[in-house]
Amino acid sequence: MPPSRPLSLITGASAGIGAAFARDLAARGHDLVLTARRVDRLEALAEALRRQHQCQVTVLPCDLADPAAPEQLCNALAQRGLHVDWLINNAGYGVPGTFEATAWKTHADFIQVLITAPAELAWRLLPGMRQRSYGRIVNVASLAGHVPGSAGHTLYAASKAYLIKFSQSLALENRHLGINVCALCPGFTLSEFHDVTGTRDLVNKMPSYMWQTAEAVVQESYEAVERGEIVHVTGRFNRFIKSLVKLMPDRMALWLSARESKRYRHAD
C-alpha cells in the first residue's frame, strides 16, 4: 500500500513539465523534494505549493551536470530522514547544432544530466523502495526516442531512446515488488525548452494540434504509471506518429525525419 502522504523527488522542477509535476502531485496529497539549478524559481514554487496544498516541500538545488550531484542529493535526503516514494527524472535540455561543432564538455554535461544522473538516482533510491514494497519512477523521455534521429540535437533522441529501454528493463526487474516504472514520451510541449534551444521561431509555425500543455502531459503520466504502463506516449497525434514510423521502412522513415526536422531543429 502507498503511504498516506507519498514523498516525490522531482528533478528539473523549476519550469515546464517538472513544475507541472510538482503542482499535480501536491494537489494529490504528496509531499515534495524539488531540485534544479534556479533556486529562486524553486523557492517561489515551493512557497506557493505550501500555501495552496499545506504540503511539505523541501528545496535542494543542485546541478546534475556535476557527477557528484546525485550522491550528494541522496545524502541530503538521508540526513533529513526523507524516504522517496516517487522519483521523477525530468531534468533535461537540448543542445542545438551539429555534433562536431559543439565542445565536448557541453556534450559530456548533457550525457551526465540526461543519462547518467537518472540512472544513478534510480540506483540509489531503489533499495528503499524495494524495502518498503512501494515506489514509482517516471523517466521523462520523448517521442524523439521512438523516431529516427535527425540533424541537430545529435544526442537528444539517443538519450531519450536510452531512457525508454532503461525504463523497460527496470520495470521488469521491479514490478513484482510494488514498484512501477514508466518512460513518459511527450511530443511537442508548451514550455521554455524551445526558448533555451533557440528554436522558438521555428516551432511557432507548427499547427496547434501538435502541441500539448505540460499539465496535460503530467495528467496522462500519472494515470499511466499508476496502471503499470511501462512506456507511455502522450497525445493521440504523437501515438499516431509513433505507430506510423514503426510501420515504415527505415529508409522512408529517415527521409521523412530529415525533411520534417528542418521545421523545428537547427542543424548548424
Rank of each mutant, 00 (worst) to 15 (best):
L125V: 14
A258N: 09
Q112M: 08
I179S: 03
E226Q: 15
L32M: 07
A26D: 04
A183H: 06
L247R: 14
Y162W: 10
H53M: 13
I88G: 03
G135K: 00
P96K: 06
A117V: 06
L60A: 08
E71Q: 13
G135L: 01
D24E: 07
A22Q: 02
V225H: 04
C62W: 09
L7D: 03
I88V: 13
L256D: 02
I164L: 04
V95R: 04
V59G: 08
V233S: 06
D24L: 08
Y264Q: 06
Q219L: 13
A20N: 06
P148D: 14
V225P: 03
L170N: 01
Y264N: 08
R50Q: 15
A158E: 04
L82I: 14
I115S: 09
N204Y: 04
K242Y: 11
K205L: 04
S257T: 09
L64W: 10
A122C: 13
S243V: 11
R265T: 10
H194I: 02
L49Y: 11
V245N: 08
C182P: 10
A171M: 00
Q79T: 09
S14Y: 00
R41F: 10
P118F: 05
V147T: 15
P67C: 10
V245I: 14
S221T: 06
Q56C: 10
Q52R: 15
C185H: 02
I111F: 12
R51T: 15
H146P: 06
P67M: 11
R200H: 03
V231E: 09
A216I: 14
G16K: 05
R200W: 00
S167A: 03
H232E: 07
A65N: 09
R51S: 15
W211V: 06
F21N: 00
Q52L: 12
G187N: 03
I137C: 03
A144L: 05
I111R: 01
